[in-house]
Design a protein around this nucleic acid. Structure first.
Lengths: 96, 96
DNA sequence: CAGGTATTTAACTAAATACCTAAATACTGG
DNA sequence: CCAGTATTTAGGTATTTAGTTAAATACCTG
């Protein structure tokens, strides 16, 4: 299901990218890369993982690509957390 | 910081364990294992990861160990999500 | 269109993860 | 204390992941 979501946010660098995008609204890979030590290729991989999980989206304008947050997808994890912690919603299933 | 939390929930089997514990309040590894195909040793590893992330806690009573959810830790991820999606709370930091 | 900048893809390596089986540990009941 | 049950630890393997460098692609400007 939303496995790609959980995998995507399991990495601290990717979480940092999300926070950068939150702060700056829109950034190119070049700008994001200034905040990290690793290569542009590694960054590109991280962006692909975030794109696949639909946590960010890209808009190409000329020479640059502008990345932004796609906050709507975070609802997935909120609903998952609610499912785990909400004591009122207890399903009764005898999975045995 | 709470890296262990994100790593712990990145695995679908571990998320399933959390949901099982939510449903049944308290379970032994043996009971949890009935819901999975893999070995008891593999399960034990998953439980250790969840314990380390403080998502569950264990109480030993005689021959058995009873695992339960520790829902309080989920506040961490909720506050992280809020940090990412909440547009009002925009810090201004020139990290360059 | 040639050179330059921005980004991604390819091919690879090293480290981490998820699993296995077998052995070790911890407890219970006869 | 011995045999049995429950769980964890140890040691090993296969797969995945995060990074590397080098090459490819895409666009811009002169």
């Amino acid at each position: 299901m939303s496995d790609s979501f959980f995998k995507a946010i399991a990495d601290a660098n990717r979480r940092k990218i999300l926070l950068l995008l939150k702060k700056h609204i829109t950034l190119t890979p070049g700008e994001i890369g200034q905040h990290f030590e690793f290569s542009g290729a590694a960054l590109s991989e991280h962006l692909k993982i975030l794109r696949t999980a639909e946590l960010i989206y890209a808009q190409k304008r000329g020479q640059y690509i502008y990345y932004s947050l796609n906050t709507s997808v975070f609802e997935d994890i909120i609903s998952w957390i609610m499912q785990v912690i909400d004591k009122s919603e207890v399903q009764d299933e005898k999975t045995r």
